[in-house]
Computed example of a mutant assay.
Amino acid sequence: MIILIGNQKGGAGKSTITLSLANYLTLEKKCPVLVIDLDYQQSLMQKYDKAKLLENEEPYEVLPATLEGFGSLMNSIADTKNAIILIDLPGKLDDDGLLDVFVLGNLLICPFAYDEFTFVSTVHFALVLKKVSPKMPLVFVPNRIKANAKFEIMEEVNTQLLRLGTLTPMLPDRIDFQRLTTFQTPTLLTPVLSPVLNQIYAEHIHGKY
């Protein structure tokens, strides 16, 4: 199973969701997982390398990748077909090489925020995915939501996104997320993440890999 995590809007929280899901699947659900870091910043790869320097045993492997070398990489990991492959996508849509990635996906997880610019970018991104892979389920994750914030466009955003896919509970904007590593999720984040990750697992992963 190949799960894509992406949004063309930078700062939406792609890498954080990827890391949270990878930790959840390996540590809680005992699933074999492989993470591919296609993002230009390679932040997941940096965390993975840091964990190795600290001599921590990682529950999964993170591989760096580029769009140019993506096909060769997928061929080289053919023996990991039984693993759940999580791909942290680059935050843009203007590279034709992404089409080769999109068509392989079995599920897209799209973090977003409740502001007009992010909403427009999210819908555009989702429409492109639907055009390339009409049958691929889309899951939208409201992310980095500030406490007591009022979002005038929330109802409209939810209505539009539910026409394209499903919506998870919201994730708050918390400093704890900066403490996520490739070998553990901070304990204080577990009750925050569980409703989102449990829904994704129950609806799209359980019994399907």
Rank of each mutant, 00 (worst) to 15 (best):
K50V: 03
G105Y: 01
V139L: 01
G105P: 05
L129K: 13
V141S: 11
A113S: 06
Y201F: 07
Q178W: 04
P142E: 14
A126D: 06
V192F: 03
C31Q: 11
V128P: 04
K135C: 09
H124I: 05
L197T: 04
L164I: 10
V123W: 10
T168C: 15
A51M: 08
H204Y: 15
D88N: 14
Q178I: 06
T166C: 15
G13I: 01
P191I: 05
A113W: 00
K50C: 03
K47Y: 05
K9M: 11
S15M: 09
L127H: 10
V103D: 07
V33P: 00
V33F: 00
V101F: 00
T122F: 00
K81T: 08
K9P: 03
E155A: 14
Q199I: 04
Q42E: 13
M45A: 09
Q8L: 12
D173A: 08
P169V: 10
G105S: 09
I77N: 11
C110N: 07
S121A: 12
P59L: 11
A147S: 14
L161Q: 05
K150D: 12
Q46A: 12
D49P: 04
F183M: 07
L188N: 09
E155G: 14
I175C: 03
P191H: 08
A65S: 06
K92A: 11
I77Y: 04
T66Q: 04
N143H: 15
K130V: 02
D173L: 09
D37H: 15
G11W: 03
N158C: 14
F117I: 08
V35M: 13
P191M: 07
L27T: 05
P59R: 06
L63F: 08
L54I: 05
T182Q: 08
I2N: 15
I175R: 06
I87W: 02
L99I: 14
I85D: 00
D95V: 14
E156F: 13
A83L: 09
C110E: 07
G207H: 13
V62M: 01
G105E: 01
M170Y: 06
L67V: 05
V120G: 07
L167H: 13
P64K: 08
E55Y: 09
G13T: 01
L27E: 02
V139I: 06
P32F: 02
V103A: 12
G10Q: 06
M1L: 15
P172M: 09
L167M: 13
N148F: 10
G71K: 10
L138Q: 03
M74L: 08
Q178F: 07
L98D: 10
I145S: 15
Y60T: 10
E28M: 07
T118F: 03
I77T: 10
G10W: 05
I17A: 10
N56D: 06
F70M: 04
D49W: 02
Q42Y: 06
P195F: 01
N82R: 14
I84S: 00
T18G: 00
L193G: 03
D39N: 15
D96A: 15
I2F: 01
F140K: 00
P142C: 15
L193V: 03
F151D: 00
E152T: 14
D79N: 12
H204W: 15
A126F: 11
T159D: 10
